[in-house]
Design a protein around this nucleic acid. Sequence first.
DNA 1: TAATTTGGTTTATATTATAAACTTATTTAC
DNA 2: GTAAATAAGTTTATAATATAAACCAAATTA
Lengths: 95, 95
Amino acid sequence: MFQPLDPLLHSELRLAIISLLISAEEAEFPYIKEQTGATAGNLSVQVDKLSVAGYIEVEKTFKGKRPCTICRITPTGITAFKAYVEALKTYLNVK
Amino acid sequence: MFQPLDPLLHSELRLAIISLLISAEEAEFPYIKEQTGATAGNLSVQVDKLSVAGYIEVEKTFKGKRPCTICRITPTGITAFKAYVEALKTYLNVK
DNA sequence: TAATTTGGTTTATATTATAAACTTATTTAC
DNA sequence: GTAAATAAGTTTATAATATAAACCAAATTA
């Protein structure tokens, strides 16, 4: 009947992060922050969770002299997102 | 960009309850319990939250001598569900 | 050189979801 | 007839989660 929803993706901010990265393939921390409207602290925590799960990869580099955190979705993340969307459909009365 | 997700509906069990009631218009507590696979305690709590929010109405009646709790969705609940689905679409890359 | 901004991380708190424990009444089994 | 089991929930305790506040380091600007 209802498919279980991946708790890692069933979170407003983490879902927004993954959604962004699915379209963009790569995004910098401040850009994600701006697009999602999240606080830096919250974003940092959620990015870390997605990273630990292997849904995204995080590259810490530099842009000139300033630190720059780049996030990318992984194949695991793409698969998880697709599965989440399919599971969601069982709740939304979509054929 | 991303529309905020109604926290009352962004919950696996409450979303399942609403989803059921959208289709069924009326359902008894044990039926919802069976369809969602929830424990009675969890279901009781979530039904109460939806009821307090006015998303569903709860009628406590009897079936023969046994108590029988009937749940129905309200117009408020229908509106909220539709809005939630629209908001979700901003995360799912659906046009 | 003092203040502000940038780019975050860590930690504390408040909320939430969830199940365990409990209650009350009704059947069913002996 | 009474003891055990089932039905239908509710209340309470716990564990997980989301979130923002506080913090840190370096670079830039005043």
